[in-house]
Amino acid sequence: MEQIEGFAYILGDDINTDDIVPSHTLTMRDPKEMAKFTLEFVDANFVNNIKKGNIIIAGENFGTGSSREEAVNVFKILGIKAIIAKSFARIYFRNLINKGIPGITLDWDDKMFSNEDQIEISLQRGEIVNLTKKKKVNFVKIPEFLTNILKEGGILNQLKKKLYN
C-alpha cells in the first residue's frame, strides 16, 4: 500500500458522482455491469482507455455530488489504485479511504503529468515520482488516522479486526 506504481489517466475539474455512475445504472444489481458505464457521458472511451492507466489524476472538486459509493466501487473494479486530485468532495474522499483507495490532494499542472506517464507514489514519504518526465513532487501526507485505514485495505477490514480480536 505504501508504494503504488502505475500509469496516469488525466481527468478534468468537477467530475461529479453522476458523471462517474450515471443515474440510469444505479439500480443495476451487478457492480461489474455498472462499471461498464463509468464516465460514459464525460469520456465515452474511458472504460477502454483506462486499461492503459490505473492512477487517476484529476482537477478540482473530484467526486462532488451524491453519497453513492458506487462511484468509488466502479474505479476499484476497473483497477484504479490511487486518485490524485487538486481537491476532493468530502463524501467522496471518505468513501475512497473507507474502501482502501488513497486519495491524494495535490495542486498539479500539465508540465507535471500527462496521460500514460509512468508514476510512482510513496504514501510514507508523501512523494510522487513521474518516471516518464523524470520529475518529483511532494504532497501533504495523508494523516495517520487515515493511513491506518488504508493499511488494512479499508475500514471494514479494520473494523473486523476490532470486532473479532
Binding site: 455530488g65 453519497s67 459509493e69 468509488v72 473507507n98 479499508g154 475500514i155
Partner: peptide, 27 residues
C-alpha cells in the same frame, strides 16, 4: 448521518447532519 448527500437538510433543526457512503453506514 444518512446514506444521502442531502442529509444536510436537518441542519435547519439546529442539529448536525451529513451524508455518508455505504461503508460508513455499515460501520
Amino acid at each position: 448521518v444518512g446514506s444521502d448527500s442531502h442529509t444536510t437538510t436537518y441542519g435547519a433543526f439546529n442539529c448536525l447532519s451529513t451524508g455518508i457512503g455505504a461503508t460508513d453506514v455499515s460501520v
